[in-house]
Design a protein around this nucleic acid. Sequence first.
RNA 1: CGGGGCGUAGCGCAGCCUGGUAGCGCGUCUGUUUUGGGUACAGAAGGUCGUGAGUUCGAAUCUCGCCGCCCCGACCA
Length: 445
Amino acid sequence: MRLSRYFLPVLKETPADAQIASHRLMLRAGMIKQQQAGIYSWLPLGFKVLKRIEQIVHEEQVRAGHIPLLMPTLQPADLWQESGRYDAYGPEMLRIKDRHGRDMLYGPTNEEMITDIFRSHVESYKSLPLTLYHIQWKFRDEVRPRFGVMRGREFLMKDGYNFDLTKEDALHAYNRHMVSYLRTYERMGLTAIPMRADSGPIGGDDTHEFLVLAETGESEVFYDAQVPDLKLGERRVDYDNRDEVAGICEEFTTLYARTDETHDEALFNAIPEERRRVGRGIEVGQIFYFGTKYSEAMGATVNTPDQGRVPVHMGSHGIGVSRLVGALIEANHDDKGIIWPEGVTPFHVGIVNLKQGDVSCDSACEALYRAFVEAGLEPLYDDRAERAGAKFATMDLIGLPWRITVGPRGIASGKVELTSRRTGESEEMTSEEAVEKVAAIYAAL
RNA sequence: CGGGGCGUAGCGCAGCCUGGUAGCGCGUCUGUUUUGGGUACAGAAGGUCGUGAGUUCGAAUCUCGCCGCCCCGACCA
């Protein structure tokens, strides 16, 4: 993409309404525009990041054997009356009437609807196990939306639902989700810690929240200093292997890590003092096992091998996709702007032409641009007639992890400069070497 | 939903107390200039001062209502 032809409305000054870093930077970098309290338009740069995150979530769900579908944002009230949540949910649920006076709602979650889909088409234990998920916009009419996309009213969420014959099977689904989530966050360059949590209104016995450590987090967290060092890394996971999956879950949940909701002072104090940590975290996902709560209420039953009929065991599992954009920035920024991890960056590399209109600089930039496109990468070429300072400031603000600087001085000796946004370190090399190096970095992801 | 604050040009703000022709910086547009970290000069465009009512000869300014937004708490992917 050529910046002169892109739509990137960056702001030099910080909008007064934004208090925390991610919100400020998303506005300044032209990623979002607020339309109402807690409701945002996603401008091209923000939309790109959102889509990258969504893509990673999809890939890891499919890898775990889960099946994508898409349910509507608007739901009929009667499904929720069946489960009893129409009255239980309260004013957080946005209720709407259509022209015929029928009661509808903008879905805050989809347990009822997915259960309806399941019961319409599944009759036999032979169809199990089954895990369906979608990534769709949700609406929760928060009393007080804040922190930009981290606490919006409208938000994009991946929500998945497992249907299993037995509790044991459902717990395997639970574990599968935990491992797939760990992998999802790691690919984004985030450390998200599973913490035992309260079940809240969704109900159920087993639940973990995934927290990204950040000072601006809304939850207080207590954890063993060794927990953030746990990594899934390169290991291959067979998601059908129950023992292996359970083993990984055990590895990641044995050390103490809890939110204030479930914090246990005595257990915490059993950790050696130098390893006790208290901090704050941003919740970016949650997994639940809730048994037959919805299947019983809504008649989602299957025939069993011994001629019986039983309600299925279920769980639901969510990742806050739009919230992750904010959480990623909270975890990756400095005073100049955003620093995207390679896994989610909107463009792979920025090309800065220090002397637009200079024949040798222009042609070197064009050649770099073509080379990156041919290598399957997306460059953002700042070809505006701005001076160097403005171009650097824009690149720093929008946070592309790699920048190539092309100027008359370097070009005279056949060199360009490759700079890491994270470390600020620069290296001189030929254009070919720069393309090769950047391509190798992304190929290794 | 309790408490606090704000609404004046695209963005950031001053003016309001003490009513009298609506201003500044940035951005935008035109021209010149400059060119390795948000450049300089000259000119231009852009505002029913959130909204409705009231007081007044006269309201951005005073009074009341409404709407919107932000912050702190209680609640949540």
